[in-house]
């Protein structure tokens, strides 16, 4: 039950303990954070199980791990290790350019990235229990995550005002399962939680995404690529709780040292943008 909390990328047991101590509701166990994956280039794969198991031993909060898009065997391995959630993630190099993992075949829940309502409902249709914005990972630039949550929410508002006899065409136009489109209209929101991810670097970024309607926050490179990870991790947790209180936000944002270096999205060629991976 991670709703309303912050999930942090970690690469070592020591970092996992810093995250838990700061008040993270879960950690994402990785060999490298997205900024380093981006810098290293080449093929990015599931982390070494040894790294994941050491992190699972270090903390009592849930541990998530990433599998490549479509790589259902990596997912089988992660499930066998006992991780609490699998992120079928565009941060890793996709293993299949046409098909995502059939997540209904697993007991362990999945989280998947989405840039719009259609993509979110396709992933939920495949069995995802949690959605997150894709954003643009490893950039420390929140602009893409903002675009993605605004897009999903504006499409949901449009759907809420679409008459029932037009829903099949709505479903066709966004390439989403009809039954899920009907359900979203009834609920007025996605049937699963929708977290923010991909570029969150400051307490203000986290609060921005919460005020835009996200159910919680993933912070990838933003914490352990900053000058003072301990203080920043704690501040982001507190900002996510009091996201609607500018006085608390001002207080927790003070004296955190330098944030991670950011990247302008326009400086990344389209074919190198992680958010373009998957469909």
């Amino acid at each position: 039950m991670q709703k309303g909390g912050v999930i942090m990328d970690v690469t070592t047991p020591e970092q996992a303990k810093i995250a838990e101590e700061a008040g993270a509701v879960a950690v994402m166990a990785l060999e490298r954070v997205p900024a380093d994956i981006r810098a290293a280039g080449g093929v990015a794969r599931m982390a070494d199980p040894e790294v994941i198991l050491r992190i699972m031993d270090a903390v009592t909060i849930p541990v998530m791990a990433k599998a490549r898009i479509g790589h259902f065997v990596e997912a089988q391995i992660l499930e066998a290790l006992g991780v609490d959630y699998i992120d079928e993630s565009e941060v890793l190099t996709p293993a299949d350019e046409d098909f995502h993992i059939d997540k209904h075949r697993f007991t362990v829940p999945f989280v998947c990235g989405a840039r719009n309502l259609g993509e979110a409902l396709r992933r939920i249709g495949e069995g995802a229990a949690m959605i997150r914005t894709k954003g643009e990972p490893g950039t420390g630039n929140v602009v893409e995550a903002v675009r993605h949550i605004r897009t999903v929410n504006s499409e949901i508002r449009k759907l809420a005002n679409t008459p029932d006899d037009e829903l099949m065409t709505f479903a066709k136009n966004i390439a989403a399962p009809y039954e899920l489109v009907r359900e979203v209209k009834k609920l007025g929101r996605l049937p699963v939680v929708n977290f923010a991810a991909g570029g969150i670097a400051t307490p203000a970024d986290a609060a921005l995404m919460m005020q835009l309607g996200c159910d919680g926050i993933f912070v990838g490179s933003g914490i352990f690529k900053s000058r003072d990870p301990k203080a920043r991790a704690k501040a982001i947790v507190e900002a996510t709780l009091h996201y609607n209180d500018p006085k608390v936000l001002a207080d927790v944002s003070r004296g955190l040292g330098e944030a991670m270096p950011g990247l302008e999205i326009a400086s990344i060629r389209r074919e190198e943008r992680m958010q373009e991976r998957g469909w």
Binding site: M1, Q2, K3, G4, G5, E20, E21, G23, A24, V25, A26, T60, I61, P62, V237, E238, L241
Partner: peptide
Amino acid sequence: PGGESTTIGKL
């Protein structure tokens, strides 16, 4: 409510 007890406790 239910959630992560370490997180809720710290806050």
